[in-house]
Design a protein around this nucleic acid. Structure first.
Lengths: 339, 339
DNA sequence: AAATTCTGTAAAAACGTTTTTATGAGGATG
DNA sequence: CATCCTCATAAAAACGTTTTTACAGAATTT
């Protein structure tokens, strides 16, 4: 089955190649009847413009979405699904396409992104994370690449005024959430966090600490639990911590998914939520209201986050004005049954 | 910043364009020292081949992944995340890329897929679903498009021998799962299913019916609950059904996510799982073991499903031999605490 | 009526590769 | 020493568009 191109349409319609092109590109200067005969010929031949040829003159209108961490972890958290949904909504409206990027190592990631951008496969990328002092950022800025970050960079980052982000105020969110626990009378509050090389996790820690301090509670390093890759291990770590510190009466989990592990640990120990231990999560995944008792958490407008990321990235690509370089979205404390 | 191309590299290395190309394409007939000077020049100039130009001669090496249903629903079920993870693993190994496709209407979907394939943006597509008598299938076969289906088509589908699928034996899985409930003594078993225009849902219904019949239990249309878009509504529908038929002692849910709604309904009614009502799910999402009590379910090798889909699609694209046109993956009954 | 502008279209250049064809220099063969 | 290979490379064609430039002929202005 021979591929049909603009040339065939031109022949069929008895016009030149350029006329066909200007009909499709809406270039103007083509009378109605000529346009009609071209359109008719195109329809008859089922003509679809070749995207590679178009891209050779312009762009593929592709944007890359970078899932970080090992590919293993990349898609598991429903958070990502929801961001994706937001991105997809905008991307489509703007006639762009989404390319998924998930790498196994940081080195691979950097090389892959470089190639993707340099080769023109994508016009820009969305980083769905923010690592501390990420060399990738420097690389991207140096190459004047189009990109936007979900999250934020260090407050004193040298390139802060050259990059774009969409974020929630993670420190304040955590501060508020932990404060609620404190106001309920909890004095010993454990924090379950993830690896500290992601800014968001630093922020959680920071908000947690500040809440304690500003309420006159001493920060105790030993009340921090770090989630490991092995879920069972995480549950056991939580149990051990609870055994070691029976005075712990509340837990703040960095993410609802992690809060679920806390639930598991607590229940396995025969304790009750919230009577024995209160639990607070973060993100308000749909999971939160399925847990028993229903999880109190911080609602993050994940879908809107995705939309804003896509919206602004496209503006960046088109060199349009962006009002806010660093967008901060509002969150909401959702109190359910777990505290 | 001027974009540098093969021409610049050629000039830098004092060779012709074709020599540079054959170095990169490993075409042979180029001595080590020439090769080295080309490579050096390329490195110095940070040359990356333009993907659009390459694609104009060959292909973009893109495959499209079609999420069906409204974009709203597309990404919510962790099932899709997991399939995606599998696909991504293979795709990368084969030096291909993934394009996400999610449409709002069937009409849009058909047009979009047609354009995507005809324009050369993607070389083939993976359909993450299988609709009954889907006109799209006919369209794809007629156009000799490369595609593969997650799921299966009707047993007597005219094009059955022209398409490729990867699936689990959904009828048998359901049959087995429901049989377990029956063997435990349950006689009135409700089924929570989804819209009947997807083959997988038909299969669930079919397996359910056959299990009943072969155990001498009469099928009762009124024990079927269809999930609606509104989650709260679904929970209420389940509650109403349980009130109307207090003799119901077990529920089989088409999907773990739906089983979670059953949990909610049962708990809100003050009943206990599994003492009052046993619940069985399907898919073994990570959610299943987080629910309280832990959900019994059918484990589907979702990751492997994704891998196989990608593997075979790439074979189809490369016109390689495929041993099985319709791959059926094994499943496993996981009995936890909910029955 | 001549000069100018406008319209509609064609021709051609350009995009950056890959691949086919051509070519010239040595080397081997008769 | 003429012929034929082989090797390394260059030149050119091709991929399918978009866009610039060119050019007739019609319409308008002077």
């Amino acid at each position: 089955m021979k591929k049909i191109g603009i040339k065939d349409v031109a022949k069929e319609a008895n016009v030149s190649i350029s006329t066909v092109s200007r009909v499709f590109r809406k270039y103007g200067n083509v009378p109605k009847d000529t346009e009609n005969s071209v359109l008719e010929a195109a329809k008859k031949l089922q003509y679809t413009p070749n995207i590679a040829a178009q891209a050779l003159r312009g762009s593929l209108n592709n944007i890359g979405i970078v899932f970080t961490r090992l590919a293993e972890d990349a898609f598991i958290n429903p958070f990502y699904s929801e961001v994706l949904r937001g991105i997809s909504t905008i991307i489509k409206k703007e006639n762009h396409y989404m390319q998924i990027i998930a790498c196994d190592t940081l080195e691979e990631e950097k090389a892959e992104i470089r190639t993707l951008l340099a080769s023109g496969r994508v016009d820009g990328i969305i980083l769905l994370y923010s690592r501390c002092m990420d060399p990738l950022i420097y690389d991207l800025v140096k190459n004047e690449s189009n990109f936007i970050i979900s999250g934020r960079v260090e407050s004193d980052h040298l390139l802060k005024d050259k990059i774009y982000t969409v974020n929630t105020d993670s420190i304040k969110d955590t501060y508020d959430a932990v404060s609620v626990l404190i106001n309920k009378g909890h004095k010993k509050i454990a924090l379950i966090n993830e690896e500290s090389n992601y800014i968001v996790n630093l922020d959680r820690m920071n908000g947690y600490k500040q809440a304690l301090i500003s309420n006159g509670i001493e920060f105790d390093e030993d009340l921090i639990i770090i989630k490991t890759k092995n879920n069972r291990e995480t549950v056991n770590n939580i149990k051990n911590k609870l055994k070691k510190h029976p005075e712990i009466s509340a837990i703040f989990a960095k993410d609802d998914l992690i809060a679920a592990y806390a639930y598991e640990a607590i229940k396995e120990m025969g304790l009750n939520i919230p009577q024995d231990i209160a639990v607070m999560g973060h993100n308000d995944l749909y999971l939160a209201s399925l847990l028993e008792p229903k999880l109190s958490t911080v609602r993050v407008p994940i879908f809107e986050l995705g939309c804003k990321l896509a919206e602004n990235l496209i503006k960046i690509i088109n060199k349009e004005e962006i009002d806010e370089r660093h967008v901060v979205l509002p969150t909401e404390l959702i109190i359910r049954e777990s505290i």
